[in-house]
Amino acid sequence: MKDKFIIGAHQSMDKGFEGLFNYAVEAQSNTFQFFMRNPRGSKAKDFDYKDADRLKELMEESSFGPMLCHAPYTLNPCSDKEYVREFAFEVMEDDIKRMEYFPGHLYNFHPGSHLKQGIDYAVEEISSLLNKILFPEMQTTVLLETMSGKGTEVGRSFEELKKIIDKVELKDKLGVCLDTCHIYDAGCDIVSDLEGVLKEFDSIIGLEKLKAIHLNDSKNPMGSHKDRHEEIGKGTLGIEAFKKIINHRDLRNLPFYLETPLDNWGHRDEVLLLKSLRDDYE
């Protein structure tokens, strides 16, 4: 039996939940990523249960893979300001409450920036937030995203993410989303030594914690700490790196989400390109 290739792109919520599904189908995808609210703000529309039920129905009929809800970029769970940390708590708590209406899916967030308070401070604040938000009955898996390490950004190394995970009580509700642009910009050579990078991830965090992949090429060289996404195959990672990633035995069964600087039609072309690179794809 051939493995299912679960791949999609970031989609707009402008036409509601059913619109997310329609955009994904248009892009030749079988999953998608989205923001529940303004990615650079805080506002979320009232939850439309009828629209949400329609999405669940369509995804089940089409055997879609898990969708991924991304937290707003404005959140900083380890800010030096209490009101900013409280804002992160309120938004994430509400997002996860909404995601629980869709059992078995994913919620991803950037760990934040410690603003010169130090990594130990950041670990305490982020883990404290997660210990308040996660609950035993929840069916959404919350993901910490690997980051490029610009400025005082947290998550630039597997060790930093492990420190957070170690302090979270409900570890079974927590996972990691690996962003290819971010870890390459952070200094992980996934172009020449993918096997070595994954071995390091496994030894520090454990591959069982890796739940999703953000597929992004990079505009900058390895170790640049810049975080500038590029279209697949048009950046410094190159097409062969992505062929290895989507076919790797430890990654191929994970869901892949594109965050490249393209519109829906451009994402369709990228999805088709990646499907052509997938071994034994039908």
Rank of each mutant, 00 (worst) to 15 (best):
K2N: 11
K2F: 06
I6P: 08
I7E: 06
S12I: 09
K15L: 14
F17Q: 05
Y23A: 03
V25A: 10
A27P: 12
Q28T: 14
S29C: 15
N30W: 08
T31P: 03
F34W: 04
S42R: 10
D46W: 01
R54L: 03
R54T: 08
L55Y: 06
L55W: 02
L55T: 02
L58F: 11
L58D: 12
P66F: 03
M67G: 04
M67I: 09
M67D: 00
Y73S: 12
P77I: 05
C78S: 02
K81G: 12
E82C: 08
A88M: 03
F89H: 10
E93M: 10
M99S: 13
E100P: 13
Y101C: 14
H105F: 14
Y121S: 11
A122T: 03
A122G: 01
S127V: 01
E137H: 14
Q139R: 15
Q139N: 15
L144H: 08
S148Y: 02
S148C: 08
G149F: 11
F158V: 13
L161K: 00
I165K: 02
I165P: 00
E169D: 12
K171I: 15
D172F: 07
L174Y: 01
G175I: 04
T180W: 02
H182L: 07
H182F: 04
L194V: 08
L198V: 10
E200V: 13
E200K: 10
F201C: 04
S203I: 06
I205A: 14
N216A: 02
S218I: 01
G223Y: 05
E230P: 14
G233C: 01
G233H: 02
G238T: 01
I239H: 00
K244E: 10
N247S: 12
F256Q: 02
P261Y: 12
P261T: 11
P261Q: 08
L262Q: 15
D263Y: 06
H267T: 10
L272W: 04
L274R: 03
K275H: 09
D279H: 08
